[in-house]
Design a binder for these strands. Structure first.
Length: 635
RNA sequence: GCUGAUGUGGCUCAGGGGUAGAGCACUUCCUUGGUAAGGAAGAGGUCGGCAGUUCGAUUCUGCUCAUCAGCUCCA
């Protein structure tokens, strides 16, 4: 007999080799029906798992995130099984559960079409109806390889060969289908109640672009039909607020064939951009930053000195001027450093905080371009802080507070990730350790939880990344703080210390928006185009009821413009209902309706985009309200 | 860059080997209507670009460019 400690602390004696399913069943009949697996000493296992030692067991249920993951994992096997049934000879690669679904990679000469997806989905539903039980079995390495070779699964053979010596090689079998898999799974294909295949796309074998491109089928599945419907609904909602769609509809920006990845900002998009930049400037002045502007084209020797030529050249645009090589800047730091070098600095001057809204160009792969989120030229709201070693922590914490303040203005939640030294990097181990420790210390002192991304840092230093969460729960990397001991050495920049000797300052690179272009893209989706009053390209639209009010409308417009309110007049001879509809669709925060009544009493009938009719108020009252809303940046 | 799909008036899309069509938007006229679509007429496109097949191509083929989905990469 062995002892099982359950999550609530109770203990239970069971026979050695008892399955998790049996234990769940013994605890309660009802639990066995909703259980899909367990967590033994923190490791996830399925119901088929046999318990052989004293362990702590936590029964996982369908409603748990883990439960959903098991279900998606099994679904990927069902997908593979369906494909094997319909397209024999297809070779299987890998098929994991992912955040909202699963995928499976296939190698076949047949090109999967949309119709194929429908057929495959139908076959999957059949497999679900068959309620095939999943059986787990283990094989020795040689047996495993032999089995997979027999089935012609070359990719699986490769996977097995790469498994570590002591790995347990397990398989799962459902009906006629057997797949190499570590598990865990749900006990039967019948547990999957709702299945949907979403798309097919190419993916490299093992994620390496040197390898063969396989075909990847994406799908999702749920234990309840309702959950699937909700998920599909959420996808629809996300589509509706896609910044590329809204950017076109609201006339904010565009991308032209003549400049792939180089966005055009329209007058209305420019208003948003300018408001963001104004806000950015105000806040930086308050925090002791100085603003600079450096050129976008600089000569090759600068980029050699900075290390970009060696580490970043594939992404740089180069040109020749008077027979000399030049490059368009992909980053702003070298320019800032030249600015620092223009004169001698005393230790008393530090920290020096230099901000720049810097336009950079990067040659991104054509397939990576995506609206405003991924472009080839963008403006970084960059700043470089030059400081003494003992100022590092305070400066980093200052930036963290700054970022926090900034994101709250827009109602964003965020989380933080710390990236460490990449393979292609400069500097010594000691410097990297010092830099990483400085970032970690600041985070710990602020008591902020963070995730570590090994090897994901910049080539000159580690970084803290801020990942925004929008209202649909999607995340976007925006702000980053990067610590740099390299550039000051490479450029030999110095300050004079209290001892009268030269010393190397330490440098922070940081952005808050990340790129203004991307940030605007995120804002469009976050607000679904309904910008708060302070950002709205048009804050109010005057809607005259008849042509008799046109002249008054123009006077009113001029009055509001002189008060700094962004305003339009709809002068068309249309009915008021129609004008309201259009104003609402263009997401203007306020509609100001004027008819004979309002004209006589010098009032306006205000209709809010979000709250509907607000009734008639004095023009001066409206002006005050809008001004206040804009100043407070109310959401 | 790779794999697949797409590319028709400002926008959303239909069509199809014999030199193009709808709705919305736009212009003009009628209507002057009080909180999400009043009516009529008009203007607007070398069907992404370049070649090829054909008596004839926007439609078929090839190449190319751009976009979309994903991979890779990233602010």
């Amino acid at each position: 007999m062995i002892t099982i400690t359950l999550k609530d602390g109770t203990q239970k004696q069971v026979e050695k080799g008892t399955t998790v399913y049996q234990i769940a069943k013994d605890i309660s009949e009802g639990l066995a029906r909703v259980a899909i697996g367990g967590e033994i000493n923190g490791k996830k296992v399925d119901l088929m798992h046999k318990v052989n030692d004293d362990v702590a067991l936590n029964i996982l249920r369908f409603e748990d995130e883990e439960g959903k993951e098991f279900l998606r994992h099994t679904s990927s096997h069902v997908l593979a099984q369906a494909v094997k049934r319909l397209f024999p000879g297809t070779k299987l690669a890998i098929g994991p559960a992912i955040e909202n679904g699963y995928y499976y990679d296939f190698d076949t000469d047949h090109r999967f079409t949309q119709e194929d997806l429908e057929k495959i989905e139908a076959e999957m539903k059949k497999i679900v109806k068959e309620k095939l039980e999943l059986e787990r079995f283990e094989l020795s390495r040689d047996e495993a390889i032999a089995l997979m070779q027999e089935q012609g699964e070359d990719y699986k053979v490769e996977l097995i060969q790469d498994l570590p010596e002591d790995a347990i090689i397990s398989f799962y079998k459902q009906g006629e289908f057997v797949d190499l898999c570590a598990g865990p799974h749900v006990p039967s294909t019948g547990k999957i109640k709702a299945i949907k295949l979403l798309s097919v796309a190419g993916a490299y074998w093992r994620g390496d672009e040197k390898n063969k491109m396989l075909q990847r089928i994406y799908g999702t599945s749920f234990e309840k039909k309702k959950d699937l419907e909700e998920y599909l609904h959420r996808l629809e909602e996300a589509k509706k607020r896609d910044h590329r769609k809204l950017g076109k509809e609201l006339d904010l920006f565009s991308l032209q064939e003549e400049g792939p990845g180089f966005p055009f900002f329209h007058p209305k998009g420019m208003v948003i951009r300018n408001m963001l930049e104004d806000f950015w400037r105000d806040e930086h002045v308050k925090r002791g930053y100085e603003e600079i502007k450096t050129p976008i084209i600089l000569n090759e020797s600068l980029w050699h000195q900075s290390g970009h030529w060696d580490h970043y050249k594939e992404n740089m645009y180069v040109t020749k001027i008077d027979d000399q090589d030049f490059a368009v800047k992909p980053m702003n730091c070298p320019g800032s450093i030249l600015m620092f070098k223009r004169k001698m600095h005393s230790y008393k001057d530090l920290p020096i905080r230099m901000g720049e809204l810097g336009l950079v160009h990067r040659h991104e792969l054509s397939g990576a371009l995506h609206g405003l989120m991924r472009v080839r030229c963008f403006t970084q709201d960059d700043a470089h802080i030059f400081m003494l070693p003992d100022q590092i922590k305070d400066e980093i914490m200052g930036v963290i507070d700054f970022v926090d303040y900034f994101y709250n203005i827009f109602g964003f939640k965020y989380h933080i990730e710390l990236s460490t030294r990449p393979e292609d990097s400069m500097g010594t181990d000691e410097e990297w350790e010092l830099a990483i420790n400085a970032l970690e210390d600041a985070l710990k002192e602020k008591n902020i939880p963070y995730k570590v991304n090994e090897g994901d840092g910049a080539f000159y230093g580690p970084k803290i990344d801020f990942h925004l969460e929008d209202c649909l729960g999607r995340t976007w990397q925006c702000g980053t703080i990067q610590l740099d001991f390299q550039m000051p050495q490479r450029f030999d920049i110095n300050y004079v210390g209290a001892d009268g000797e030269k010393h190397k300052p330490i440098m922070i690179h940081r952005v808050i928006f990340g790129s203004i272009e991307r940030f605007i893209g995120i804002l469009i989706e976050h607000f679904a185009g309904k910008f708060p009053t302070w950002l709205a390209p048009v804050q109010a639209r005057i809607l005259p009821i008849t042509d008799r009010q046109l002249e008054y409308a123009t006077q009113l417009k001029n009055r509001l413009i002189s008060q700094g309110i962004r305003i339009e007049v709809d002068t068309r001879s249309e009915k008021i209902g129609y004008k309201i509809r259009e104003a609402q669709l263009s997401k203007v925060p306020y509609m100001l309706i004027i008819g004979d009544k309002e004209m006589e009493t010098e009032t306006i009938a205000v209709r809010s985009r979000d709250k509907g009719e607000l009734g008639a108020i004095e023009v001066s009252t409206f002006i005050e309200q809008v001004k206040e809303e804009a100043i407070n940046k109310s959401l």
